[in-house]
């Protein structure tokens, strides 16, 4: 046997790995569509445009700027909810409590405003309380290793129950500042207008895009969804991040509750039942993988818009019951989840 040590080093003859051959434009387009990062989002974007075009072709008056803007006006609270939910789902978790937290937020807002509190106190108070609830949920998940499904289910029942502790009946909101805020329209010229809620929702979206895309916290959120174990071994602040995403979701739920009470000008214990599932649907249709790790906030916004435009079409149709929205959403969800499975399966 000869020594393996005195053989000439073979490294000189080794070429660096060849770069991939340039792809044809079609191949490149296919790559973009089949990437788990961008594929589902693009499909959603195309879907939105397609549905919007179908609506425009079928119904008179559908193709107006205000119809488009109303998608934001009517769904601003859902956009905020979907943003919070995106953080959670990106880590591979789920938050079932958001609908109930919206309800309890409307109840707190309505009852405190009714007893004469100032909105300047009530709104921050709601945001602090719901963030705190999110913190408790996050700690439960992190410290006691409770499944997110179970922990947030508990929070959901807790929040829903608290609604009835506050009042069994609907409370309307008459507080002047609040009402003024609710009826204000911000003109955009050309007869178009939006509400302050839309502005708030869009600000939330912009902040979320920045946080998720360009901060260490945001990238750690993605890391958690990619592989929690790897994240720990890479020395990332995994534990902290895991707790904070539920605080973010709690905060967003509270804010969504405030926007919802602006939208309805009332608090009602049975409101927003099942909204958590709308938010999850929007996030999934928006291209975020339920397993975590892949997805964008803007995708979730698109998801909300898709839900909104389906609802609008059904309203324009006039003859269909509003439950058809659910049926369409159900079908869409199915398609998107299968799409995700196909895309992730290709990678393994």
């Amino acid at each position: 046997m000869t020594s393996t040590l005195d053989r000439p080093s073979s490294s000189a003859s080794i070429e660096p790995p060849k770069p991939l051959p340039p792809r044809s434009p079609i191949g490149r387009v296919r790559d973009i569509f089949t990437s788990p990062r961008s594929g589902p989002v693009l499909v959603t974007a195309l879907l939105f445009v397609a549905v919007f075009l179908i609506g425009g072709a079928r119904y008179r008056g559908f193709f107006s700027g205000q119809v488009f803007l109303n998608l934001f006006v009517d769904n601003s609270y859902l956009i905020v909810l979907a943003v919070g939910m995106t953080f959670v789902i990106l880590t591979g978790g789920i938050d079932l409590s958001v609908g109930a937290v919206v309800a309890v937020s409307t109840m707190i807002a309505a009852s405190l405003l009714q007893s004469g509190w100032s909105p300047g106190v009530v709104i921050p108070l709601i945001l602090v309380l719901t963030s705190f609830l999110g913190l408790l949920v996050g700690l439960m998940i992190h410290v006691f290793k409770v499944q997110p499904f179970i922990a947030t289910l508990a929070a959901m029942f807790l929040a829903r129950g608290l609604c009835y502790v506050i009042s069994k009946d609907s409370i309307s909101i008459n507080e002047p500042t609040f009402v003024a805020l609710a009826v204000t329209r911000i003109p955009l010229g050309g007869g178009l207008s939006i509400t302050p809620s839309v502005v708030i929702a869009l600000v939330v979206v912009v902040i979320a895009v920045w946080v998720l895309g360009f901060t260490r916290f945001g990238r750690t959120v993605y890391a958690l969804g990619g592989s929690e174990q790897s994240g720990i071994l890479m020395g990332l602040p995994v534990a902290r991040t895991k707790v904070i995403v539920y605080v973010v979701s709690g905060f967003c739920s509270g804010l969504a509750g405030v926007l919802f009470s602006l939208y309805t000008l009332s608090g009602y214990p049975l409101t927003a039942v099942g909204t958590e599932l709308d938010a999850i649907a929007a996030v999934v249709i928006g291209g975020t993988l339920l397993a975590g790790g892949y997805g964008f906030v803007l995708g979730s916004v698109l998801g909300v818009l898709v839900l909104g435009v389906i609802q609008t079409i059904i309203t324009f149709e006039g003859t269909l019951s509003s439950w058809w929205t659910r049926i369409f959403i159900g079908g869409l969800l199915l398609v998107f989840i299968i799409l995700q499975k196909v895309l992730t399966a290709r990678r393994r």
């Binding site: 788990p36 993605y222 790897s230 071994l233 990332l236």
Partner: peptide, 26 residues
């Protein structure tokens, strides 16, 4: 033990990334 869902650059530098304006300097 890296993260397949993030970019190569992030996998190399996450945790010690260069920063600008409080965010990551991509």
């Amino acid at each position: 033990n890296l993260l397949p869902n993030l970019s190569v650059a992030e996998n190399i530098l996450l945790g010690r990334e260069p920063r600008r304006f409080g965010g990551i300097d991509g």
